[in-house]
Nucleic acid binder design. Sequence first.
DNA 1: CTGAAAGCGCTTACAG
DNA 2: CTGAAAGCGCTTACAG
Lengths: 345, 345
Amino acid sequence: MGSDNATIYDIASEAGVSIATVSRVLRGEANVSPATREKVRQAIERRNYRPSSIARGLTSKTTHSLGIILPKLLNPHYAMIFTGAQEEARTHGYTMSLFPWASLDTDAYNPAAMLIERRLDGLIVCVEYLPPDHDELVHDALKTLRRFMPVVLIGCIPPWYDFPSVANDNAAMTRKTVAYLTGMGHDRIAFIGGVQEDTDPRRRDVGYQQGLRDARLPYTASYRVFCKGTAEAGKQAMDDMLQSLKPCYWPTAVIALNDLVAMGCLLSARERGIDVPGQLSVIGCDDLFCAPYLSPPLTSINTHQQRTGARAVQLLISGEQKRETVDWELIERASCAPNREAAPT
Amino acid sequence: MGSDNATIYDIASEAGVSIATVSRVLRGEANVSPATREKVRQAIERRNYRPSSIARGLTSKTTHSLGIILPKLLNPHYAMIFTGAQEEARTHGYTMSLFPWASLDTDAYNPAAMLIERRLDGLIVCVEYLPPDHDELVHDALKTLRRFMPVVLIGCIPPWYDFPSVANDNAAMTRKTVAYLTGMGHDRIAFIGGVQEDTDPRRRDVGYQQGLRDARLPYTASYRVFCKGTAEAGKQAMDDMLQSLKPCYWPTAVIALNDLVAMGCLLSARERGIDVPGQLSVIGCDDLFCAPYLSPPLTSINTHQQRTGARAVQLLISGEQKRETVDWELIERASCAPNREAAPT
DNA sequence: CTGAAAGCGCTTACAG
DNA sequence: CTGAAAGCGCTTACAG
């Protein structure tokens, strides 16, 4: 295709110098006389020459390309992370490629082969709640991968994984979310989480229970359910919860694991004629672009995903071995309101 | 980092053969005796060896990496395209990297340098409506790029660009959308489009006017406005249109250039107490994941973005020089309804 | 069926 | 300040 594939040899002969000299002006080294530099510059210009990062990589043992493994880009939450990472990478002259979770698949004949063969300069892996027995397999895959390239983790990282990482403190986040709702007089607060696994301190679920204790509220098992992080699943989970309870026991507020699930809750409520926020407050997480356009506009937690992606790239490039926490921000909109039924204080 | 960086030499000596032989079993060539093959296999296994795609690329003049230039991933529309492209690429053993529009910037000192240096095996460029004077600059940039790698275009392609491409027929799409609404008795149909440029036949705008003619409806300039493809801009555009018209002249239906803009319209209507679809039908485009969860659920056009991305990759790999059209599908939801004011037929 | 050698397009000491 | 040469880790004719 390219008819313009000049090499460093072409430029050298065209400028009447050696390839070492061309290489020097290409990399902007100082020890080249202005005259030669200019000759070389012109030859490069004339031939429209761009050095091959491939050949350069062979010598320098560096590819200036990074990878990121994300569950699914179709959830804007991950698209935000990707965007933050991609932009930061580009700033530093790195390229960013997306790999699906299957790339890590521990069942495959050649786990991570594609990743390793690419000789990436670094890899970001977004870990989400996994079934407990899967955690070990993923951990092994990550440890293998680390022998070949730096790895930084984001998402929801099992505490025993020993990797540099950047993540939100989900438990603290949810604990404060509960406090926000109890502060508005809510006392029947439901929580829709991801995979159930009680012993893991990183979980939002744990923060939920702490929040309840903080407010000296009873823990009601029926208000704690789990589902996949999709709008459909959220709708279903909410439908099921409401159906299983006499209306007088319905929660007055619900915390959803993410905005997609919250959207499902909103729809479930609307179909039943439950007024949000009059009878039910709903709060999501991720602050997706559509949150302000839902009806009612959805209160959500902005988890600074772009910054997360960018920081992960910075750790990768700098080689720092930190485990970082990124902060978050509650974005108040109309989907939460004081509990009408609350006893006056 | 990687302590495991065995090379083909290590494997060769460990298996007691030449590197040529190792290369042969690596690439699965037939002319290797079963015994040697097995010896080599075991050495590879023992050392956990994976050949470097970088070195391979230097020789074979191929990188098995593709690029895609997209406006912004934060609009799920583009995330869908990216996902379709990425998955198809992976199927064929290709890697997919995202580049922002700035990569094409014709003002930069080194336009597209990063793209060219990477020696991509192909590039997908998503072209959207551009200011008329920008069209030529982009065209030039693309023609330069094509000298270095195959380029396939997607999005909204100026008809005089001579590149392989895959896209929807936006004009036909909008024409039929108008027909859908006139079929429900609407006669004051507004259209919120992108950049204004009347002479370009690819435009949705053209389809809008054709649709009006089809139904022998008057063309009312006030009903045709333009804005950026964001929810905020859509809200603003709708606000402006309504404010500029006495309510008795308000449109009974509005076609938005995409779902983001449609979301803005919905919000604008809600704030004014305009009932959708009772007093106003709204129809979007792209069928974003949130469309079913809006209030009311948004009628939209599914443009098969993942298929678009996948086809673009296929064209890139096969080298076909086709200009393809991908079909679309109207997804009916509750945001459109027959016009109450319509005269009975 | 197998190996020695050249070559892919760069960078990097090492001389001068 | 500049060049000759080796080397990065592969593939690919070419011999045998």
